[in-house]
């Protein structure tokens, strides 16, 4: 019983971080029509920010602020030098961001080497409730993720920026004719999405092994979540993240991580055959 609860908590942990990553990806895709193949590398950069602050003796906590800032700035830079030129050719952005992802990964290898690095957990004690011991740090991750997810919902549903962003998602040209500066909105969005991924990477760094391939491990499930949940709505990401992340944890626990991936992937493909717009997505014929 205790084992099961711990597994459920671990699954929830994965789901919440996955939703954080997927939300950034979804916002960038929904708003800008850009599939950001470098999103996994933003996660990676966030994780390596923690490695750096650890190496120079600052410990873990400053990275929690530094990671989203640094990765957000990098995102802004990439939008400026690369993606900005491709808004007229959305399909090419997938190639360009993939080139960016290759370059970032290689830079990490040049600076930190290809091997995995570990970071000591910042809250090394257990919390025990009703005879179940659970690492305090994992609870901390869940709290951070919940706060960030709620914050993103608040921005998109309750602020002027969010209203503008939803208008752009619904109808880009109409929003532009109504005076919304779409270019500026693109840049803000891309920066925000990158920062989200950076923060997710930073909080996950202490419980993962940081290696240059770790980004891909989050990018693919994040994208499958969007696919399953449907684009255009933030609730879709919640549903998709819960199904993909939860299913992945469940099957990994009962069988093996490889079987889990195969099952989830097959399910996702069958699902989009039946419901191409995703579970909660509205059909958007462009």
């Amino acid at each position: 019983m205790a084992d099961l609860i711990i597994q459920i908590l671990n699954g929830l942990n994965f789901v919440l971080v996955l939703i954080m990553v997927a939300m950034g990806l979804m916002i960038i895709f929904g708003l800008m029509n850009v599939i950001n193949m470098a999103h996994g590398e933003f996660f990676l950069l966030g994780a390596y920010t923690v490695v750096v602050t650890n190496q120079i003796g600052l410990g873990f906590w400053p990275a929690l602020v530094l990671a989203p800032l640094a990765v957000g700035l990098i995102g802004m830079f990439i939008e400026y030098v690369c993606i900005r030129h491709l808004y007229q050719r959305p399909l090419d952005t997938i190639l360009a961001t993939w080139g960016v992802s290759l370059a970032i990964k290689q830079l990490i290898i040049i600076f930190f080497g290809p091997a995995g690095l570990t970071v000591s957990p910042p809250l090394p004690w257990m919390i025990s409730v009703a005879g179940i011991n659970y690492p305090a740090y994992r609870l901390f991750i869940m709290t951070v993720a919940l706060i960030i997810i709620a914050f993103t919902f608040y921005i998109f549903l309750r602020t002027d920026f969010g209203l503008g962003a939803r208008a752009v998602i619904a109808n880009r040209d109409m929003a532009a004719t109504l005076g919304i500066d779409t270019r500026r909105m693109y840049r803000t969005t891309f920066t925000f999405g990158a920062a989200l991924a950076g923060l997710a990477g930073a909080v996950m760094a202490p419980i993962m092994s940081c290696d240059p391939q770790m980004g891909l491990g989050f990018f693919i499930p994040a994208f499958l979540s969007i696919l399953v949940g449907g684009t255009g709505t933030l609730y879709g990401v919640l549903a998709g993240g819960a199904i993909v992340g939860g299913g992945d944890s469940l099957f990994s626990y009962h069988y093996s991580p490889v079987i889990a991936q195969v099952v989830i992937f097959s399910l996702a493909i069958v699902l989009i055959r039946i419901r191409p717009q995703g579970l909660l997505g509205a059909r958007n014929n462009e």
Binding site: L95, A96, G99, Q106
Partner: peptide
């Protein structure tokens, strides 16, 4: 190691 870095950047330029 710099080869892949170079290839990635060159690829981005070529795409654009």
């Amino acid at each position: 190691y710099y080869w892949l870095l170079f290839l990635g950047i060159f690829f981005v330029i070529a795409v654009i």
